[in-house]
Simulated assay, not measured.
Amino acid sequence: MAAIRPLAMVVLELLHEAPMHPYEIQQKIRERRLDRLTKVTVGSLYHAVEKLERDGLIAVVETSRAGKRPERTTYRLTDLGLDAFRSEVVTSISAVAVEHPRFAMAAQHLHTVRPEEALAGLRARVLALGGEIAAVDAAISELGAREVDPLFWIDLRYSRAMRQAELDWVERLIEQLSSDELPWPEAAHRRIEELEEDRR
């Protein structure tokens, strides 16, 4: 079976707790701020639920209507869904996947821009990372104050640790580039000048 998409994993996680209808799933996503893991819209949520049902990972428990409210369909995990969900969790935490982050690619090409441009970009990244860390800290504080079980938002602790590690690394890189501890290759300087000259 193909990897389960992030929004589908969020749906399966919530149905792992209890059968729910999509509106209830949407409320839980808001309460726990699970939209930090993937983009969620009403349309994308209903699409994810429909696909999970087509794939046999969830099934209808009942369809009901309360007063003049729209009809609501409650879903539950199937045995296939439970096995697929657990397998995806274990595979994803145990396997180190090859990822191609944009920042790593840009860092590889750092020597192709002028040192002052690189340093300006890196300093801007430091500010952005600081802002992201502050936002994560605020989310952790809010969820803690609401007494949401910490295991439900452990990904925030992971995200904060990764951003802090990146911030520390970028700040150290700025120090190295600013002090010539990590000098710009002379050949790279020459090539930048040649390309600029060709443009004139």
Rank of each mutant, 00 (worst) to 15 (best):
A135R: 11
L119V: 14
L119F: 05
R86W: 01
P101T: 07
E88C: 04
E88V: 03
A120I: 01
H100G: 09
V136N: 04
P150S: 04
A106P: 01
T112L: 15
G121H: 08
E142T: 13
I93R: 12
M105D: 07
A95I: 13
A106I: 06
A139H: 05
V98D: 07
A95P: 00
L119P: 00
L110K: 05
A128V: 09
A135H: 07
M105Y: 08
A120F: 02
A124Q: 11
G131Y: 06
R125A: 15
P150D: 03
E117R: 11
T112E: 14
V136E: 01
T112Y: 07
P115M: 11
R86Y: 05
V113Y: 07
R146I: 06
A135L: 11
R86H: 08
R86Q: 11
L122I: 11
L110Y: 03
L122F: 10
A139S: 14
V89F: 02
D149Q: 09
R102H: 02
G130M: 02
R102K: 07
E99F: 03
S94A: 12
R86S: 08
S92C: 01
F103R: 08
L143E: 05
L119C: 06
R86N: 13
F103L: 15
A134P: 00
V113C: 06
I133Y: 01
G130L: 03
G121I: 08
L143A: 12
V136Q: 04
E142N: 07
H111G: 06
V126P: 01
A139K: 04
T91M: 04
E99P: 00
M105K: 10
P115R: 15
H111S: 12
D137V: 07
E117D: 14
A97Y: 08
R114Q: 12
D137I: 06
G130V: 03
R86M: 12
G121W: 06
L110P: 01
I133R: 05
H100P: 00
T91K: 10
A95W: 04
A95D: 02
V148D: 06
D137N: 15
L129F: 09
A97E: 12
T112I: 09
E132R: 14
S87W: 01
R125H: 03
F103V: 13
H109G: 11
I133D: 05
A104R: 05
A120K: 12
P150Q: 04
R102C: 03
R123Y: 02
S92M: 01
V89T: 05
E147H: 11
A107D: 02
A139C: 08
A139F: 00
